[in-house]
């Protein structure tokens, strides 16, 4: 079984990777990618089913917070049933999106402002090293440079400092991070294709 799964992973990976460089493999690549899309969608369903089972068990066991779990399961099943029946683009389903999902997420995002300011204020009390100071100064300068005054941009900050930080200094760091992430991704992917890493449980 281990060899079988490894062969599947390596073979599929090589075929898909070959599709990037060899046009002859483009169709096979597309076929495999379409299969993968279907299976990814099915995996999303499996994840949701798992969420249902977990919270259902909590309700069945009457664990602490089972009331909230019951609410979650009811909301989930109801939405799913209505979604299956009405389809997601139905206006009723839009109500759920505009009335519940968007307000809750946006409000949670709004609460983040308080938390961010609170964390920034307390940061230097916990650690006052170079990186923290640089981090906080940069954030403060950019926040200040992003604002305007009634008569226009904040002199120097909004017109010179902010653009230079974001377009030069931050660009260099971000590029380094991106290249590092790409190298890490490349390494991890190659390990999977070589069978060194088997995150699918075939170790």
């Amino acid at each position: 079984m281990r060899i079988f799964t490894a062969v599947i992973a390596i073979a599929a990976g090589i075929l898909v990777l070959g599709g990037y460089f060899f046009p002859a493999l483009a169709d096979i690549q597309t076929l495999l990618l379409n299969w993968a899309i279907i299976l990814a969608g099915m995996a999303a369903l499996v994840g949701i089913f798992n969420l249902i089972s977990v919270h259902t068990d909590k309700v069945r066991r009457r664990e602490k917070g089972s009331t909230y779990s019951a609410i979650l399961v009811i909301a989930l099943v109801a939405t799913f049933v209505f979604g299956l029946i009405l389809r997601p683009d139905h206006s009723a389903m839009a109500i759920l999106m505009s009335g519940i999902i968007i307000p809750v997420e946006a409000a949670l995002m709004g609460l983040l402002t308080v938390s961010l300011i609170y964390a920034a204020i307390r940061l230097l009390r916990r650690r006052a090293d170079v990186m923290s100071i640089v981090f906080l100064i940069t954030a403060a300068l950019l926040i200040l440079g992003s604002a305007t005054l009634p008569f226009g941009n904040i002199p120097l900050l909004g017109t010179l400092v902010r653009p230079w930080i974001t377009q030069v200094l931050a660009l260099g760091g971000a590029r380094g991070i991106l290249i590092g992430v790409a190298l890490g991704t490349l390494t991890t992917g190659l390990r999977v294709l070589f069978g060194a890493d088997r995150p699918y449980g075939g170790n």
Binding site: A44, L45, I71, A75, I101
Partner: peptide
Amino acid sequence: YIFVGVSSGYIAAI
């Protein structure tokens, strides 16, 4: 919890 349930049901329907 309602938000999580609705979002999950909506994603499942999607």
